[in-house]
Design a protein around this nucleic acid. Structure first.
Lengths: 259, 259
DNA sequence: ACCTGAACACCGTTCAAGT
DNA sequence: ACCTGAACACCGTTCAAGT
């Protein structure tokens, strides 16, 4: 990730000497035309994706965008860093919308869950933020509307349909939480060098050797699962969940419809 | 939360003048006898429970325990704050053990899930840490062993049984994530004063008024659910999940056994 | 050897000063 | 009015100095 853009500099950067600049080397637009809220949020998302949420720092954002720290506040028109997080969360919600929602509740729910999971695997910090942020922005509202629309054909009262949506979302969010450390977040990278993994493995083997862990000795300790494992486990769990919902709320429907 | 204990002071506190102290006013044990790893971890958990994970600060811990910042490192024998988090996570895992695990997989899984949820609702910061921390300590290992033992009577191969456990845990963790902002964490408190809630509600009403949100206009926007709502939703979702698992892996078992 | 004070390199945000 | 430099009150952690 480049620390600053390759755009022509020399128009007031604090580090540069105040040399006279030619018109054509000077950007036509005002210097801060690129420092829009959209650009700031995009840069913040890029930082979070690459290095984890803790990398999203007002000061680092400023360096990234060739600005001064306090300019982030004024140009993004935010009153605190938390509001920047609100914007980031909502931006990801836009990505989570499904293009063509099936009519039947089961494939529709599956599509919503799968889409959410795919997007959130790319932005795992989202689940860290959603816990402390109930404020739904425009895209978040649209997403919630779509999730409710997915179960509109389910023969159950409104509150039960809401519970269905919440349950499926809950499962997706839980999955991302467990996938968090798999991602290349700065924290995980820093925490799990190979020698540490080695030490943990040895520790677990020693524990198992005591004979007090019969289940673990056959299944093995909870290794960091591979991406393929997680995919399979996700589908398995989602199948069970949808089957249970169907059996309980749509008993006349096919037990395993082709969705 | 008292910032320092009511124990007799005056035995070297930096703020006190070096007045001569009588033997009986001096603690019999050495001054730092109370500064054990257990005490430090307990204090850290107390801070996290009360004010959220961000309140767990080396410096604030030091004040709480009437020590100097670097003493936390030496006496807890940790090399970084992250290792303190490891200890906190493991401590909570000890609480999550179920006293008497039923034999049948369904009530056993229900007991594990319910117990985990109850404990984690008291320590919601646990889910924030579990994402970046795969290192299972002694109690975490014991917990994982127990979760596997819960499904040992389920007629399925080892990997599928593991998937069952992971799925149920995933659901529990997701639930806690959504419950996070309900808790009185410092962040949530700061973020959701009443006037802000009011503004958010108005914003959602305006969105709904556009007519683009037919589902929301009948169900209403996602209000912060009450504790009772969350309890009911949790049980509903868990029922669906267990029903689906049973239908798929234990079709001969009763569809709704009395567990 | 074990412990820790001072210092360093960061943070988010306030606020007075600039334009 | 809008923007921002300097300052403030924090962080976690290094490391040299103390005992």
């Amino acid at each position: 990730m480049p620390r600053r853009s390759a755009l022509p500099a020399g128009e007031g950067s604090t580090a540069d000497p105040p040399a006279p600049s030619l018109v054509w080397t000077r950007p036509a637009t005002t210097r801060r035309a690129a420092l829009t809220r959209e650009a700031i949020v995009a840069a913040a998302i890029g930082l979070a994706d690459a290095d984890g949420l803790s990398a999203v720092t007002v000061r680092r954002l400023a360096v990234e965008l060739d600005a001064r720290p306090m300019s982030i506040y004024s140009y993004a028109r935010i009153e605190s860093k938390e509001e920047l997080f609100d914007l980031m969360v909502d931006e990801v919600c836009a990505e989570m919308l499904v293009a063509d929602l099936p009519d039947h509740w089961r494939p529709a729910l599956r599509a919503v869950a799968t889409r959410s999971r795919t997007v959130l695997l790319a932005h795992p910090w989202w689940v860290e933020l959603i816990g402390r942020n109930v404020l739904l922005g425009p895209h978040g509202t649209r997403y919630w509307e779509q999730a409710l629309a997915a179960v509109r054909t389910l023969g159950a009262d409104r509150e039960t349909r809401q519970a269905v949506v919440v349950t499926v979302e809950t499962y997706v969010v839980g999955q991302i939480t467990f996938a968090l450390d798999e991602q290349g977040s700065a924290e995980a990278e820093h925490r799990s060098p190979e020698r540490r993994h080695q030490a943990v493995r040895q520790y677990h083997q020693d524990l198992i050797a005591t004979g007090e862990f019969p289940q673990l000795s056959s299944v093995g300790p909870p290794e960091p699962t591979s991406a393929a494992d997680r995919d399979r486990f996700f589908t398995l769990g989602l199948d069970w969940l949808l089957a249970g919902i169907g059996a309980s709320l749509d008993p006349d429907g096919p037990p395993h419809p082709a969705d």
